[in-house]
Amino acid sequence: MKLYKIFIYTVLILLAVTVAVPVLWVFFASFKENSEFYGDPWTFPKGLYFKNFVDAWTDAHMGDYFLNSVTVTLMAIAMLLILALPCAYALSRFSFKGRTLVKGLMMGGLFINVSYIVVPIFLMLTDLGKLLETSFFLNNHFILALIYASTALPFTVYLLQSYFSTLPAAYEEAAAIDGASPFVTMLRVMLPMARPAVITVILFNFLSFWNEYIIALTFMTKDSSKTLPVGLMNLMKAQNAAAEYGKMYAGLVMVMLPTLILYICVQKKLTHSLAVGGVKG
């Protein structure tokens, strides 16, 4: 059976290397000078060529895009929580007319991928813009964040609602006897108890908002309002045209470093809460 053990380790290590090497390679490549890209790709960088990062940050405007991404992601997460928490709470705690319908609709929404409907959303907003004679809806970070938050609702409400229904009702009854209004009960009693689920929701949605590019590409037509992943696409095109390798790798690092740092901090939480997670990507 020793042979089987060796086989297992060989395959596992091989797979781990296949996953890790491309990512590590990007980090090394981001420190290489342009001339180093014409030789053997397996070599380590000769020195730490930080100019790639400076070039990407300022010349390629990745610094501005970074700020845009931070703004949009934070706004979208805030909106999402304000919308989804009360909705999930009411759906799990009260019985009212139309509850099954709302629940069913939201469940159906789990199967609608944003990529399927990005064009109709675009047309809807441009039509509305023409009607109101305004270009308010395009290149607007608030609108982009609103689309992110709205399309993340089914997944988020589903997850929060199933967590709320595991919490005992005794706390709310006690709060009601003390004369607390339902709003105060929700805010002061139930939300603090739902903290683990809220953290999960924030983590998953942070990753998907930060990484999203197709909606951003469609709605952020002006150069100055782009987000990081769209900026990276520009750098990929520039690299093909002008062979500016270093800048592209530095940009790549900028997009993935925040998610990697977050992942290293919370990997247990992410991979363990996946079972409740359901549909993604």
Binding site: V19, V23, L207, W210, N211, E212, Y213, P229, V230, L232, M233, M236, L252, V255, M256, T259, L260, L262, Y263, L270
Partner: peptide, 8 residues
């Protein structure tokens, strides 16, 4: 790979 953007 799951935490990386499709563009990345």
């Amino acid at each position: 790979p799951n935490i990386l953007s499709a563009v990345v």
